[in-house]
Nucleic acid binder design. Structure first.
Ligand SMILES: [Zn+2]
Ligand SMILES: [Zn+2]
Ligand SMILES: [Zn+2]
Ligand SMILES: [Zn+2]
Lengths: 138, 138
DNA sequence: CCTGATTTTGACAATCATTCTCAACAAGTT
DNA sequence: AACTTGTTGAGAATGATTGTCAAAATCAGG
C-alpha cells in the first residue's frame, strides 16, 4: 500500500514569506496575518494565506483556535511540541503555552462514563496580558 | 442612578414558541432551531430566532458554544444552574453537563502566574454519543 | 374595550469570514 | 530548456450572522 498520499508542498516565495511572518508568535486571524505580510511589502494574496495556514494547521505545524467571535486564529507552534493548550490575550493575541496534565485523562474518563466515543477536548484560557492592561487596551 | 436599563421582554407568540422548542435540550444552531420551529408549524422568522437566542444567552438562560466549524450552538440551560461545561455529541448535539471543579481554580492561578487579568475559560468535550455510534453516524 | 407609546417582528439587504474558480504562473524534474 | 504539475491571486460565491425599517403586536392607562 502507498501511504504517501500527499507530496510535500513546493517551497514558493509566498510560503516562505508566510512562514517567516509566523515567527511573530501571536495568535492572529488569516486576515490579520495577511495585513502584516502586505504591510511588510509582500504581495501575497489573501486566499494563499488562508490555504497556507490551513495546510500548516493540518500538519500540526501551527495551532489553530476559534475565537469567541468565531474567527479562526493561527499561531506557530513550537517544533516537535506535544499536545498543549494556551493562555491567550484577547486584545493582542500574545499567548503562553500551558499544560493541563490532569485533564487529559479526565476527558476520556468522562467520555467513557457516558458512552461517548472519539472524544476531543478544547481548553482555552483567555485574559488581558500585562502590556495590554498597562496600555489600557482590552 | 437607574440600573434597570432593560425592561423585561414582552411575551410574544414567537418568544413562547422558541422557549417551547428549547425544551428539546440539544445543542443546535440558530438556523437549526428555526427549521425545527417551521417544521412544527411555526411561522417565526429567522432573524427573530437569532435575536431571541442571543438575548437568552446574554441573560444566561441558554448556553452558547462555538462549534469547531465556527457556528454558534444554543441549548437551554437548567434553571438556576451554576457555571458548568459540556460533553456534547458532534453528530446530534445531545449534551451532558459536567463539572471540572479542579480546573476552575487552576485557571485563575495560571492567569495570575503570567500576569494576565480578566481570565475567562472554555472547556468543551465532544464525542459521538451511543445512539449516533450505533446508527453509524459520526 | 379602545388608544397610544413602545417593542417586536420578518422579509430582505448588507456584512464578514472563508471557500471556490480558473487562467496565469512557477517549482522541480529530466 | 521543456514539461508536468502544484501554486497563486483576483474576484465571484457561499454561508452564518447582523442590520434595516415599515407593519404588527404587547401592554399600560383610561
Ligand atoms: Zn495583550
Ligand atoms: Zn489537552
Ligand atoms: Zn449523537
Ligand atoms: Zn469552568
Amino acid at each position: 500500500m502507498n501511504t504517501d498520499t500527499s507530496p510535500r508542498p513546493r517551497m514558493t516565495r509566498q510560503r516562505r514569506e508566510i512562514l517567516d511572518a509566523l515567527d511573530t508568535r501571536d495568535f492572529r486571524s488569516a486576515q490579520s496575518w495577511h495585513e502584516h505580510l502586505r504591510a511588510d511589502g509582500s504581495t501575497v494574496g489573501l486566499a494563499t494565506v488562508y490555504r497556507a495556514l490551513q495546510a500548516l494547521a493540518d500538519t500540526g505545524d501551527v495551532d489553530a483556535v476559534v475565537s469567541e467571535s468565531g474567527e479562526t486564529l493561527y499561531r506557530r507552534c513550537e517544533a516537535g511540541e506535544e499536545h498543549h493548550h494556551h493562555l491567550r490575550c484577547r486584545s493582542c493575541g500574545k499567548a503562553v503555552e500551558i499544560d493541563v496534565p490532569e485533564f487529559e485523562d479526565f476527558a476520556h474518563r468522562i467520555g467513557d462514563a457516558h458512552g461517548y466515543g472519539d472524544i476531543r477536548h478544547t481548553i482555552e484560557l483567555t485574559g488581558i496580558c500585562p502590556e495590554c492592561a498597562a496600555a489600557g487596551r482590552g
